[in-house]
Design a protein around this nucleic acid. Structure first.
Length: 456
RNA sequence: GGAGAGGUGGCAGAGUGGUCGAAUGUACCUGACUCGAAAUCAGGCGUAGGUGCAAGCCUACCGUGGGUUCGAAUCCCACCCUCUCCGCCA
C-alpha cells in the first residue's frame, strides 16, 4: 500500500513513478474518490458531533426532570441524514481501499527503467561456467539416470508440475536445506523459525499477495460452509435460518486458509499489528518451508523438469529493519544469499531488476541467477527485495522511534536459496561423463561423507 | 467432537445503558527532593482519521460483524479467538 498522504500531496509525481513500471494510475478516479470522501466524512463527523451533544443533553436533562422533547426531535432530524452519509462514507471508503490495495509499489530511484527481462541490469558475475568435454545432460536426464528423480510417479500421485525424489537425491535435497539453514543461523545472524504453511487472508493481504493475486494461490476452507444452493433451499418462512446461513457462509469464506507461496508471508507477518521496540531492530529470521504456487498463466513455460513446480522448498531470509537502514540491509541480505552459491561453487550473476520486471510489492529487487549448463544460461535462483514501508503499511507493522512515536518499519526478504533449483544447479554443474554427480565439498558433511552420487 | 470460563490501554485489573477513551495499580517519561541512587511527592503518558498556519477542535476504536436505543464497553444475536476439563489423535 502506498502512502495516502503522498498521493494527496503529489499525485502527479507518484503517477509518473508508477508509469515507469507500466502501471497507469487513474488519477482522475483517485481525485474523485478522495474528493467525495473528504466532503462526506467532514459532514458526517459534524452531524455525529451534534447527535452526541444532543444525546448528552437528553441524559443530563432527564435526570433533572426537564423536558427533553426538543433534543429528541433534533436527533430524529439528524438521524436520517447521518445514516445516509454513513452508508455513503462506507461505500466510498471501500472503493478507495480497493483502489489503493491494487496499486503496486513505487520503484526506488536507482531502479533501471525498462519493460522486459532484457532491460535488467547485470550487477556482477561470480565464478566461471564449467567446461565439459562431453555432451551435457539436463537435470532430468541426470536425475533419471541416477534413478532418484521420478516425474511419472509424482504425476500419478498428484499431477503435472510435481516431482518425487528418492535415495541420495532426496538426501541431497535435505542436505542443501540443512546447509543453508546452518550457514544463515551460525554465520549470518538469523534466528531460525518454524512457521505455519496455511495462513489467513489478512496475512496474504499484509505481504501483498491479496487481493490482486488470488489466482496464483492454493486455498482450502477452514471448515465446512453452506453453499449458496443450500441457502436457497431453505424455506422462505424460515428467514432467520436463512440469514444465519448467509452470515456463516460469509465469515467462513473470509476465514479460509491459503497455502503459503513463500515463507515471506508467515515470517513477515510475525510483526503484523505489532510495535517493535527500537532496540530490537533489526529482526532477522530464516525459515525453511515448502512453497505452493498455482503458477496460473505459466502454461508452456519450463514444463520439463523441476524448475517450475506447484510445490517446492525454499530457505527464506527476512529482515525487519529501521527505515533508514533498509538499503544497507538489502545489500547485506543479498550477500548472505550469494554466500551459499559461493560455498557450493556454483557460478552465478546478480541482476538488478528493471521497473517493468519487479514484483508488485517491491521497491527494488536483485535477482541471483545461477548457471545452468544444459540451458547454457543463467536462471533465477533467488530474489532479494526491499519493500520499504509498502508491506509494513498494509500490516501496520511499526516500531517506536526515538521520540516514542510509532513509525512504519521497512521489510526485506530474499531466497537463501530455492532448494529445488539449487539441486538442479548442483546436478548440472557437477555432472560427470559417466552420469555420476560429484557432491560439492560443503555438502559432504550433510551426506554422510558421500563424495559422488552414482546410479545404484 | 462434547462441557465450561473468558476476550477492556505496554502489562495487570475495575466498570450501575447517559461528559467512559474508560477508575485503580504497574511500567514508562518529565520535574521536585538527593552528592548520586532508591524511596517519596507532583505532572504527563493509547491508536487511527478529519480539520486548521498553529494552539487546538472534532470523529472513531473496550475480540469481529449485526441489532435494540435519543444514547451501548455495559442489553440481544451470530461469528472468531484464547484458556480449562473430557474424547480422539501424530
Amino acid at each position: 500500500m502506498l502512502d495516502k498522504q503522498a498521493l494527496r500531496n503529489d499525485l502527479a509525481a507518484v503517477a509518473a513513478r508508477l508509469a515507469t513500471r507500466g502501471y497507469v494510475l487513474d488519477t482522475a478516479k483517485f481525485d474523485q474518490l478522495e474528493g467525495e470522501r473528504k466532503v462526506i466524512q467532514t459532514r458526517s463527523q459534524e452531524l455525529q458531533a451534534k447527535c452526541n451533544a444532543a444525546s448528552r443533553q437528553i441524559g443530563y436533562n432527564r435526570v433533572k426532570g426537564n423536558d427533553v422533547s426538543a433534543f429528541m426531535a433534533e436527533v430524529a432530524n439528524l438521524g436520517d441524514e447521518l445514516k445516509q452519509l454513513e452508508t455513503r462514507l462506507e461505500k466510498v471508503q471501500h472503493e478507495l481501499n480497493a483502489f489503493l490495495s491494487v496499486i503496486p509499489n513505487t520503484p526506488h530511484e536507482s531502479v533501471p527503467v525498462g519493460k522486459l527481462e532484457a532491460d535488467n541490469q547485470e550487477v556482477r558475475k561470480w565464478g566461471a561456467p564449467p567446461k565439459f568435454d562431453f555432451v551435457v545432460k539436463d537435470h532430468v536426464g541426470i536425475g533419471e539416470g541416477l534413478g532418484g528423480l521420478d516425474f511419472e510417479t509424482a504425476t500419478k500421485i498428484s499431477g503435472a508440475r510435481f516431482s518425487l525424489l528418492k535415495g541420495p537425491l532426496a538426501r541431497l535435497h535435505r542436505a542443501l536445506a540443512q546447509f543453508m539453514l546452518d550457514l544463515h543461523t551460525e554465520q549470518h545472524g538469523y534466528i531460525e523459525t518454524y512457521v505455519p504453511y496455511l495462513v489467513n487472508a489478512d496475512s496474504m493481504y499484509g505481504t501483498g499477495q491479496l487481493p490482486k493475486f488470488e489466482a496464483d494461490l492454493f486455498s482450502v476452507n477452514a471448515s465446512a460452509v453452506y453453499t449458496t444452493e443450500e441457502i436457497n433451499q431453505v424455506e422462505l418462512d424460515k428467514i432467520e435460518e436463512k440469514e444465519r446461513r448467509v452470515t456463516l457462509l460469509r465469515t467462513k469464506q473470509h476465514n479460509k486458509f491459503y497455502l503459503i507461496p513463500t515463507a515471506e508471508v508467515p515470517v513477515t507477518n510475525m510483526v503484523r499489528d505489532e510495535i517493535v521496540p527500537l532496540e530490537k531492530l533489526p529482526l532477522k529470521f530464516v525459515a525453511h518451508t515448502p512453497c505452493f504456487r498455482s503458477e496460473a498463466g505459466s502454461y508452456g513455460k519450463d514444463t520439463r523438469g523441476m524448475i517450475r513446480q506447484h510445490q517446492f522448498d525454499k530457505v527464506e531470509l527476512v529482515q525487519i529493519v529501521h527505515p533508514e537502514k533498509s538499503y544497507e540491509g538489502l545489500e547485506e541480505l543479498l550477500g548472505h544469499a550469494e554466500a551459499i552459491l559461493q560455498k557450493l561453487g556454483l557460478p552465478y550473476r546478480v541482476v538488478k531488476l528493471c521497473t517493468g520486471d519487479m514484483g508488485f510489492s517491491a521497491a527494488l529487487t536483485y535477482d541471483i541467477e545461477v548457471w545452468l549448463p544444459a540451458q547454457n544460461t543463467y536462471r533465477e535462483i533467488s530474489s532479494c527485495s526491499n519493500f520499504e514501508a509498502f508491506q509494513a503499511r498494509r500490516m501496520q507493522a511499526r516500531f517506536r522511534n526515538a521520540r516514542g512515536k510509532p513509525e512504519l518499519l521497512h521489510t526485506l526478504n530474499g531466497s537463501g536459496l530455492a532448494v529445488g533449483r539449487t539441486l538442479v544447479a548442483v546436478l548440472e554443474n557437477y555432472q560427470q561423463a559417466d552420469g555420476s554427480v560429484v557432491v560439492p565439498e560443503a555438502l559432504r558433511p550433510y551426506m554422510g561423507g558421500m563424495e559422488v552420487i552414482r546410479a545404484d
